[in-house]
């Protein structure tokens, strides 16, 4: 059983307190949703959970069967999609996939790439550079990369940003699948998405 535990997390920028004493526990088979007005700190908290930023106070623990896991294992098990997380625009979809698969220690598997591209509605664009993609296609491509290692922890910030209706439906399907037996954490204000979260943290409330 995998678990992410946040204890008394506070963050401030300069002297301004963004949020304080946020605690949560989310285990395999469960999901956590972060909501709140603009500027309430949703993205900041997501970045703290992913260890991209350090909190001012408090800590995040990643455990497996109650035992802490190493940073290396956290990175190996985590998939993140967010507006501040970009892929390499001068590389093709295949080259991006190949880079992220190899650096995660996975074999470059053409059939897996085709399957993921097909699922995200990008089939046939494998050899195109990402700078030729629209913003919606780039968002779909971020899911291809985030899902290639079947992450134990899937963390999404504005999961359906830039996506059309069909793209949003695909993401809802992914979120539904993830929270069945793994961990899903996401930040949103969309009512259609909030319902995927079993544990809810309303920031700034």
């Amino acid at each position: 059983m995998w678990q992410i535990t946040g204890s008394d997390i506070s963050q401030k920028f300069n002297q301004r307190l963004i949020f304080e004493n946020i605690s949560f526990e989310v285990a395999s088979g469960h999901s956590l949703v972060l909501t709140g007005a603009n500027g309430s700190g949703k993205t900041t908290l997501v970045r703290i959970v992913c260890q991209l930023n350090r909190p001012y106070k408090g800590q995040i623990r990643f455990t497996r069967d109650q035992k802490n896991i190493s940073d290396q294992e956290i990175y190996a098990r985590m998939g993140l999609v967010g507006p501040y997380l970009q892929l390499y625009n001068y590389l093709t979809a295949f080259e991006n996939y190949s880079f992220f698969a190899r650096i995660r220690g996975l074999a470059v598997d053409n059939s897996q790439l085709k399957r993921l591209m097909e699922r995200m509605g990008l089939r046939g664009r494998e050899l195109d550079e990402l700078r030729t993609f629209s913003s919606g296609m780039l968002q779909r491509m971020k899911y291809v990369i985030a899902l290639l290692h079947q992450p134990e922890f899937l963390i999404l910030d504005e999961p359906t940003a830039n996506l059309d209706e069909a793209g949003a439906a695909l993401v809802y399907e992914i979120m539904q699948e993830q929270k069945k037996d793994r961990i899903l954490i996401f930040a949103t204000n969309e009512p259609a998405e909030v319902k995927f979260g079993e544990i809810k943290i309303a920031l700034g409330a």
Binding site: L52, D71, Y75, M78, Y84, L85, F100, R104
Partner: peptide, 13 residues
């Protein structure tokens, strides 16, 4: 500048 640094931070040491 191209916001790929965070992506890289998440995949390796």
């Amino acid at each position: 500048e191209q916001q790929t640094a965070d992506t890289l931070r998440l995949v390796t040491s």
